[in-house]
Amino acid sequence: MKIHNPFRVALVATLGVGVGLLLIGSIQALSTILLYVGTALFLSLGLEPIVGWLEKRRLPRWAAVLVTILGVLAVFAGIILAVVPIIVDQIVQLIGQIDVIVQTSNLDDIVEQVRQWVQTNFPGINVDQAWQYVQNWYTSLDVGSIGGEIGGSIITILGTVIAGFGGAFIVLILTIYFTASTPSLKSAVYQLVPASKRPRFIDLAEQIVDSVGFYVIGQISLGVINGVLSAIFLTIIGAPFPAVLAVVAFFFSLIPLVGTLTGSTIIVLTCLIPGLGGGGGLFGLQSPTLALVAAVYYLVYMQIEAYIISPRIMNRAVSIPGAVVVIAALAGAALGQLLGALVAIPVAASILIIYRQVIIPRQNER
């Protein structure tokens, strides 16, 4: 192929590359804002089934949106007024306890207690060699600098918490706006589709919106159940900082597949640390017995959640094969971290709807 004007072609190609780099840089610069918008849109789709349920109870659209928004605001205000002060106080206590343990305690004595407990309860296990590895690893650490970093990170953590609540407030405002304007937004999107194909497109879009909405509600419900049950259980057994650990259980339950397991592991490991608590509750359990009881509870809970709670809550969402769930969650986490992992499964469900109702019927007609 003969190029008649090489300079013009090179200029256009250079400008194209420059525009592409500019777009990539703009996306990176606006990543936080895009994260807020994506989260708010995701949550607004989760609120849409609630608005639809209220509309079926003969409430007008504006009243259903108002009731839903007031409910969200009430939950948000309740979390701030009731839960946040307790969580912040317990986080400060937790950091202070860890700082005291690292700076003033003999960690060899603490680990020796764990070693003796293992030998007493599991006499068949030879822990001497493992203990030697632990000692060698511990002596290689600069404990003093670690303690200084932990003690000096309190202000940073508090600043991060404040910034997080600022971002949560922005997401809340955007969620309210998207929820109130969902019909107009959908109508604007539908107008872009040719009139001959618009009814079919609207039908598929509504199915996708319903699927995403039920998934969001189901995932949040699982998180609330795990958080509430964790708060009750950890308070009964006298675990350290039950409010903080209950919040950990709630947020990690929002992550598909590995969220509950990861949150449970963090809680059990926290209960395993001597000096952070224990001896309270109804049974006066001490670490590491406290951690063992917590581990048994979460093993049982994960089975109940997987086979009883989750199927009942997610029964209205689109059924997705297990392999697709794993691949979608991993790909979403790699591309968008936590939000990507949360959004990946509804996106996979949407693709499955298109695959089953559009691609397969067209192939069968040929």
Rank of each mutant, 00 (worst) to 15 (best):
P6E: 07
F7K: 15
L11V: 15
L11E: 15
A13M: 12
A13N: 10
A13V: 09
V17F: 13
G20L: 14
G20S: 12
L34P: 06
F42D: 02
L43G: 05
L45C: 12
L47I: 13
P49W: 08
P49G: 04
V51K: 10
R57I: 00
R58S: 12
A64L: 07
L66N: 14
V67C: 09
T68E: 07
L73Y: 03
F76E: 13
I79H: 01
I80C: 06
L81N: 11
V84S: 00
V88C: 04
V88F: 11
V88H: 01
Q93E: 14
V100F: 14
I101K: 03
T104G: 02
T104V: 09
L107S: 07
L107M: 07
D109E: 09
V111T: 08
Q113N: 10
Q113M: 06
V114H: 15
R115E: 13
Q116E: 14
P123A: 07
P123D: 12
G124M: 11
G124E: 11
N126D: 15
A130P: 05
W131K: 00
Q132L: 13
N136H: 02
L141P: 05
G144T: 13
S145L: 13
G151I: 00
G152Q: 02
S153A: 14
T156Y: 11
G159I: 00
G159F: 04
A163F: 08
G167T: 05
V171L: 08
L174S: 03
F178Y: 10
T179A: 14
T182V: 06
L185S: 09
L185H: 07
S187Y: 10
Q191L: 15
A195E: 15
K197E: 14
I202P: 02
E206W: 03
I208D: 07
I208P: 05
V209S: 14
D210C: 01
I220A: 10
L222S: 01
L222R: 00
V224N: 01
V224W: 03
V224L: 10
N226K: 11
S230W: 04
T235N: 09
T235C: 01
I237K: 07
P240Y: 09
V244Q: 02
L245R: 05
A246K: 01
F251Q: 01
P256E: 00
L257W: 00
V258L: 07
S264L: 01
T265H: 02
L269D: 10
L276C: 05
G277Y: 10
G278C: 12
G279P: 09
Q286G: 10
P288E: 07
A294K: 13
V300I: 11
Y301C: 07
I309M: 00
I309F: 00
S310E: 11
S310C: 03
R312M: 12
I313S: 05
M314I: 02
N315D: 14
V318F: 08
S319T: 12
G322L: 06
V324G: 01
I327S: 05
A329N: 03
A334K: 14
L338C: 06
L338Q: 13
L339A: 05
L342H: 06
A344E: 01
I345S: 04
A348R: 00
R356V: 03
Q357D: 14
I359D: 06
E365C: 02
